[in-house]
């Protein structure tokens, strides 16, 4: 019997809940370490990024106005969907160069990380809110609110766990994101988009692009309708460029230099707070 000719997968990007190729129709070819073709990967253009920002802005207020309970359930649903496709994710991590053991470890930890942040969705507000005892007859309270649209530049390593660690604090906090995947390790991230698509996550809340970091870095940091940028990496020149560009509309810049996303220290709510605005409300007390 002949060996069955496998159906090869076309990897596409994820923008506004749809799976387009780059509007520029550019691609780059991803090869394994022996030089064999794995797949053609979309090479996102600046226009793709701008389209993603439009989608992210449109989706953000709806996502933020869902109940925290609902956001929590949707994040948990992502974990459920990942569990079902764990072996595919692991195979893709192997294609990206991990050993099978490491790949399985990363997938498991990634799923657990989703469950961890699913739990924070309806709790971090209680940690970071205050009722303020002002010296006067007013009721005054402060609550965290999402900062808005967040662009995320991923580091080259830890393509699945790193992806989740960088986007989940933003998402749990009611923001929407546009992520640029690691240039040489985009497979698991692109499959993750398919998982999102079956997880009740509204389109546009998480947008996933593949492409060349060098080409898109400046745009990710300078776009006037993005409120915060997360930079995963430790290249000082890139960081300087990002922080300079971010000043154009006073963006928050969050920097993550670590490559070891397994570290327990990542499990905390303060990374959610990094992408929140504290809103304080006053009202007189009287009759």
């Amino acid at each position: 019997m002949n060996k069955r000719l496998e159906v090869k997968k076309t990897y596409k990007m994820y923008i506004g809940g749809a799976f387009p190729r780059s509007e520029s129709e550019r691609y780059y070819s991803l090869k394994d370490k022996n030089g064999n073709q794995i797949a053609n990967i979309c090479r996102a253009s600046r226009k793709d990024f701008r389209n993603s920002v439009v989608a992210a802005r449109k989706a953000q207020s709806g996502w933020a106005s869902r109940t925290a309970y609902n956001r929590s359930q949707i994040l948990y649903r992502i974990a459920e969907m990942m569990e079902g496709r764990a072996s595919q994710l692991a195979e893709e991590l192997v294609l990206e160069g991990l050993s099978s053991k490491k790949a399985v470890e990363e997938v498991n930890e990634a799923i657990d990380r989703v469950v961890y942040f699913a739990g924070w969705c309806d709790k971090f507000q209680q940690i970071f809110s205050t009722v303020n005892p002002v010296a006067g007859s007013y009721f005054n309270f402060s609550v965290p609110k999402p900062t808005g649209v967040v662009s995320v530049i991923m580091p080259e390593k830890s393509s699945l766990l790193g992806l989740l660690q960088l986007i989940l604090p933003a998402i749990a906090g009611g923001n929407s994101v546009i992520v640029l995947l690691p240039q040489n390790n985009p497979l698991a991230g692109l499959t993750f988009a398919e998982i999102l698509h079956t997880s009740d996550m509204p389109g546009g809340v998480i947008n996933i692009l593949s492409g060349f970091r060098e080409e898109l870095l400046e745009q990710f940091a300078s776009h006037m309708d993005v409120n915060a940028v997360i930079y995963g990496g430790s290249d000082t020149e890139s960081l300087k460029l990002i922080q300079e560009q971010a000043s154009k509309n006073v963006k928050h810049v969050v920097v993550e230099t670590s490559n070891n996303f397994f570290d327990e220290s990542f499990k905390n709510p303060y990374c959610i707070l990094d992408l929140q605005e504290i809103k304080t409300t006053w009202h007189p007390v009287g009759i």
């Binding site: 303020n132 005892p133 002002v134 402060s142 504290i278």
Partner: peptide, 8 residues
């Protein structure tokens, strides 16, 4: 209205 206990 302003107060030291109230974030701004």
């Amino acid at each position: 209205k302003f107060d030291p206990t109230s974030p701004f």
